[in-house]
Nucleic acid binder design. Structure first.
Lengths: 337, 337
DNA sequence: ATTGGCACTCGAGATTACCGAGTGCCAGGG
DNA sequence: CCCTGGCACTCGGTAATCTCGAGTGCCAAT
């Protein structure tokens, strides 16, 4: 159906269009790439490619631009992942190695990705599910309110205030703390719910409501809210490469946590480098955008995802290379710390 | 020098220009505001205002637009702070009251301000200086690395990993923890440095380097880095009201922490509502922008600043009202929690 | 299947013309 | 002395028109 030359033509069109932003015609194609045929031949090929929906003409007498379908074919079959240069890899390493804490790692990752790809970067905070509990601290703040602090073996600290349904004296708090630590210390957070189910029974009846409150915060709020935390950066890059009119919409979308969640959620196998092109993105207002995403984590486990968002006309091989490399390095950093 | 009517004319010009974005001429001024004089008279007034530098003509045969100096006069003498509507106040209150923790408070504040003013909001994390130490926790993570957790009386939790220069056994860690807590519990963080100066002397010589490492992280890194943390939101609002060409620059500036620091740092008396107009902003690339900022904190103390950034052509009274109101409410929330 | 030739299309950019809001200035009137 | 109506002038923005050339599709020839 599509012989080698037609595929080569498609690739050439995409490469030229990505680098020039302008519809590409048969003549210039022949010049720039050394296809050993005449423009007329290319025109015939183009006609076929257009008929099959891989490219399109903005206007009757203009060159061709790739369609979403064309990019899809390109990504799936015509291009690989472009490895980063040594200099880039070293830059990533040193930049990420200097991070102080988790917040800092995430912040730096966002910047790094944005800078590397000159596009918008999106990074989700790593899940706590697979961490283990190292220590739980309960600190009374004012009457009826406790501060719950969870320290994990990966050196992460999460805190939340708990509104208590009933007053509870310091001794009871100490008891609750002791029981919590005894039960949970060393356990994976993902198994915490099961382990802790019978815990209220081991607490004095009067304090049970408070214990339940603490537990619910610990289980739901703490672990889950964390995964919802997603940051982005590189918005300035949007302004440069003009998202024609959509800029406003894109920025708005990016500022909605929910949208970011969906954006990362939609991607398929998290262990894999995933590319969603144009309308494949179900998020409203991002139909002109492509998203290259990957999971990252310490070791094998995927703890969260990160992505780069740009116009459908983006340098896919390069972006994919950057995303993959950054995901790996972040994983390393997390595994070490 | 400038009689009442000329001031009224300036005010009218600013109001019209802010709402229409178009140079305003003598005729339309007379129509829209019921000045009981003829356009010719207004023209004379305008000529004077222009000579004095309060307004300018983009082109010879166009209306007038306010200059930075004009806005300055307007803010200083012609306008007050517009109080928010009851509905707005209630919205602020309920929105902020739902916050889970400090991160959440800050995030919500940014959104709130951005939404309220339809501009870009900038919020600095509150300083820890005036908080007191409630508890210090040291958690070994891997050999040679400790996690330092600081819990304050305001229910804030800060953590950081510490690289240890020498190995240290668990007993020594426990000792160090005990000494730290004994010395610092209940003390203000700002006085921590003094209190803790002689502390290494009370530690076994072999462990002193480690103790020093922990202390330096506690004092410098922990407290100070926190103040550097500044977030912004509402970038989408930039795209709507077009910052003519500067959009790119503005976005770039906003993504630089350093720039944000300067932006907030420049403002004068932190307890006061401050307005910096156009070129008064020393930050490169923000010469077309105005910044309305205020300090906020729990009770009297100013813990940090927040600001709104928009085009010089902004609704000053409204923006100032929003900034003041939000600063107050955030202060309340922080005082309560 | 490929190629050179050719007539045709049509958007982008330049050129021109026009319109009207806005100005400055001046002479007359309260 | 300040205000006003009148008047000639300016000039940016919009619309209308023109030109140019890259690009196309088709066809006959190789």
């Amino acid at each position: 159906m599509l012989d080698d030359r037609k595929l080569a033509v498609l690739r050439a069109i995409i490469e030229d269009y990505v680098s020039t932003t302008e519809p590409v015609g048969s003549k210039s194609l022949v010049d720039r790439h050394n296809l050993d045929v005449s423009p007329a031949t290319i025109r015939n090929d183009m006609a076929v490619l257009e008929e099959q929906g891989y490219i399109a003409q903005p206007h009757t007498s203009a060159g061709r631009i790739p369609t979403d379908k064309g990019y899809r074919l390109f990504v799936d079959r015509l291009s690989g992942v472009k490895p980063l240069s040594g200099a880039e890899r070293r830059a990533i390493e040193t930049f990420l190695a200097g991070a102080y804490d988790l917040d800092d790692v995430v912040t730096r990752t966002v910047r790094l990705l944005a800078q590397l790809t000159r596009q918008v970067a999106v990074v989700q905070y790593p899940s706590l599910r697979t961490s283990s509990v190292r220590h739980i601290e309960l600190v009374p703040i004012v009457t009826g309110r406790l501060l719950l602090v969870l320290i994990t073996d990966t050196g992460r600290v999460e805190q939340r205030t708990v509104e208590l349904p009933a007053n509870i004296d310091d001794d009871s708090i100490a008891h609750l703390r002791a029981v919590l630590n005894a039960s949970l210390d060393g356990r994976q957070i993902s198994e915490a719910a099961a382990v802790v189910a019978d815990l209220p029974a081991r607490i004095a009846p009067a304090d049970r409501p408070s214990a339940v409150a603490v537990l619910s915060v610990l289980l739901e709020s703490l672990v889950e809210r964390h995964e919802e935390k997603i940051v982005f950066g590189g918005a300035a890059n949007l302004a440069a490469r003009d998202f024609s009119k959509g800029l406003r919409d894109v920025l708005e979308a990016l500022e909605e946590q929910v949208v970011l969640m969906r954006l990362l959620g939609e991607t398929g196998d998290p262990a894999q480098l995933t590319v969603r092109i144009g309308a494949e993105n179900l998020v409203e207002g991002l139909h002109d955008a492509s998203v290259v995403s990957a999971g990252y984590g310490a070791g094998e486990q995927v703890l969260a995802k990160l992505a780069v968002l740009g116009p459908t006309r983006m340098d896919y091989p390069g972006t994919m290379g950057a995303v993959r490399a950054v995901a790996r390095y972040v994983g390393q950093i997390l595994a070490e710390s």
